[in-house]
Design a protein around this nucleic acid. Sequence first.
DNA 1: ATCAATTGCGTTATGCTATAACGTGTGGCA
DNA 2: TGCCACACGTTATAGCATAACGCAATTGAT
Lengths: 133, 133
Amino acid sequence: MEPRKLTRNQALVLETLTQAEAPLSAYTILDKLRDHGFRAPLQVYRALEKLTEFGIVHRLESLNAFVACTHPHDHGPEKGVIAFAICEDCGQVSEISDPEIEDRLALLATRRRFTTEKTTIEMRGHCGNCTAA
Amino acid sequence: MEPRKLTRNQALVLETLTQAEAPLSAYTILDKLRDHGFRAPLQVYRALEKLTEFGIVHRLESLNAFVACTHPHDHGPEKGVIAFAICEDCGQVSEISDPEIEDRLALLATRRRFTTEKTTIEMRGHCGNCTAA
DNA sequence: ATCAATTGCGTTATGCTATAACGTGTGGCA
DNA sequence: TGCCACACGTTATAGCATAACGCAATTGAT
Ligand SMILES: [Zn+2]
Ligand SMILES: [Zn+2]
Ligand SMILES: [Zn+2]
Ligand SMILES: [Zn+2]
């Protein structure tokens, strides 16, 4: 699932997300890429699907939006649970990888005989910068 | 924020969710209530908004759907984090309240000077029944 | 080189999810 | 009685996501 080489559309979508300072919706990405020939939502969604598979873009479920991965170390598609702290004011998103959370959720699932395929953890609130101000 | 007494629309929406065996989208609820006079999405969304405030209905972000609260003990709107285990096969949703998870997330947030307003935790996977079968 | 299979691409159309804006009616209360 | 808060009904619109079709480029054998 490693990205051999990104296609043109994938690279454009990734670049747009990387330059953004907050999560972007698929339609916002589309608007930003109209000058580069994008015309239809599917062009964006198809690129996002691949980038998400590669693990270099994340979808934020509580926002219906997407961010480029800013994780310190690389992580593929199945390399553990990621928690997101999302600032409601400035849109800043920080990724948190924490084995304790992961282990605890795994235990809770096992106790209930639940087999987890995918875990979503999203904290909405206010980052330090926005609280100080 | 306690529910004084539910309005007719709120009661109908809650009853629909309670009888369902899986999360329902707002539009599915609308369809089920057409015989009771519901005509427009807003009638459903307005009821859901209140029921969610009351803490007796939960929104599942990863599904864009809603469930009636099945929590063993009552919980109001701000009574702690709830994790959901959602079966992809049968739709069964189980609510998990775990102080350890809560404390750990609180710690991780504090470390980053992040003030959490709302936390979403959703595990997608397969329940015991569906795995056994 | 050639063929077949895979993958990406572009387009049109459609479906699903959610809210804005406006007006009406009802009940509680000063 | 007059006011206010709140629920309600309706229409319209905004925002998010995918189905289905056919073509083009790439790959990787033979
Ligand atoms: Zn990441
Ligand atoms: Zn901020
Ligand atoms: Zn509950
Ligand atoms: Zn199940």
